Computed example of a mutant assay.
Amino acid sequence: MDNMDLQVLRQVQQWHDADHRVVLGTITRTWGSAPRPVGSIVAVRSDGMIAGSVSGGCIEDDLVARIREGALTLKAPELIRYGVGAEAAQRFGLPCGGTLELMLEPVGAGSSIAALLERLSRGERVLRTLDLTTGVVTLTEPPAHSRDGADRLVLSGTRMVTHHGPQWRLLIIGAGQMSQYLAQMALALDYQVQVCDPRDDYPWTLLAAPLTRDMPDDVVQRLDPDGHTAIVALTHDPKLDDLALMEALRSPAFYVGAIGSRVNQAKRRARLKEHFDLSDAQLDRLHGPVGLHIGARTPPEIALAILAHMTAERYGVQVSSSAVPTGGAEAGCVV
């Protein structure tokens, strides 16, 4: 669930608390080209107010029209489909003949929206199971290490199961200024963020990204990285970074990066190979200098470059951080 959908749930709860009738729509399947992924949500109030989006706007307009006409006085969840055929696809803003399937559910006391929001506020991951006959929702905890983003929605003839809460994790080694920007941006992208820095002279104020003063390699081991985990080292201190990077590069983490110039990256690779017996294949997984080369100079720009590269890796887009700058020092890599 991204932050846009979390905002929709908060709006749904506010409307429900104010005794408005609300219908919540969840994308269950798409064919062809669809504007938003499966699991995305939209909410429509009885007077036509809308929160969220599942298309370029045309489907939302149709839902509002249906509600104003009284056609969506639902007693139980109902599945509808948009965009069948080229003409309908064009009408509903689905390019390339796309088709979109939407589960509509009337929001009531059994929808458990407030309980879901409470658990999400604590950073938990939650399975929301909707009974398609009664509309009643149950909330459970996903199995440990169940982080398959492709399995965020399961629809059967009797129920719909959706995954909520952070699907991706980020460990930042170092609590400096750049880490503050990286953590804030990652939280906005729905990462579960943890920061590690054993140095007491680096304060940390971002409560949504908890800080531990334990040694970074111990934190990586405890984190038990999986394919939805990113680890970024930002301390410039080999005593802190190298052991943690060793553990990270031996794990299934989808992204491992370290700040530093190309000269220092070459020295780091040599240390990791000589002292920790990492293979060339493992070392090739290290993104250093970390992030895309976009000409970034300031801490927020560098944080943006790092998250842009992480996003590309998540979606399998082939980009590289190895472009040689045309002039000047690389951002954040002068030592």
Rank of each mutant, 00 (worst) to 15 (best):
L189V: 00
R119F: 00
R159L: 04
G328Q: 03
K75D: 15
E87Y: 05
R222H: 13
L72P: 09
Y181N: 15
I172K: 07
T134R: 11
G165F: 08
F276S: 14
D47V: 06
R91P: 10
V107S: 09
A115P: 06
A65V: 11
V232E: 00
H236V: 12
E330I: 02
H164A: 07
R268M: 06
V193K: 03
A244M: 11
E118S: 09
A253H: 02
P95L: 09
A89C: 14
L243R: 10
K75H: 15
T158Y: 00
M1E: 06
V324D: 05
Q265I: 10
T158H: 03
V319G: 08
R10E: 13
G98S: 14
G98D: 15
V12T: 08
I172V: 15
S251L: 03
T140F: 00
D47W: 03
S111E: 04
L153H: 09
A186Q: 09
S33P: 01
R10T: 07
L104Y: 10
G257L: 05
I50V: 14
L139T: 14
R268D: 01
S146Y: 00
R68D: 06
A209S: 09
E330T: 05
D280R: 06
A329S: 12
M160Y: 15
S279Q: 09
I113Q: 12
R21A: 05
Q177D: 05
P299R: 12
R119D: 00
S33F: 05
A248V: 06
L6I: 04
V256Y: 03
A86Q: 11
R66C: 12
G85M: 02
A312Y: 06
A65C: 09
V195N: 00
Y191D: 13
A331N: 01
E118V: 10
A305Q: 11
T311I: 14
H287T: 02
A183M: 07
D19W: 08
A312N: 11
P225V: 12
D201E: 13
D197K: 12
D151T: 12
M160L: 14
L245D: 04
C196H: 02
I113D: 12
L249H: 02
D277G: 09
F276G: 15
T162E: 06
S179C: 07
G52V: 03
D280Y: 04
V219M: 08
I59Q: 13
S55I: 11
A109W: 04
L102F: 15
P325T: 08
Q177R: 04
L74Y: 03
M246T: 11
P300Y: 04
L249N: 02
R271T: 12
G110H: 15
L153V: 06
T138K: 01
H145T: 11
L243N: 07
P216Y: 07
R119T: 01
Q194E: 14
D200A: 10
G39V: 01
A186W: 04
G227Y: 05
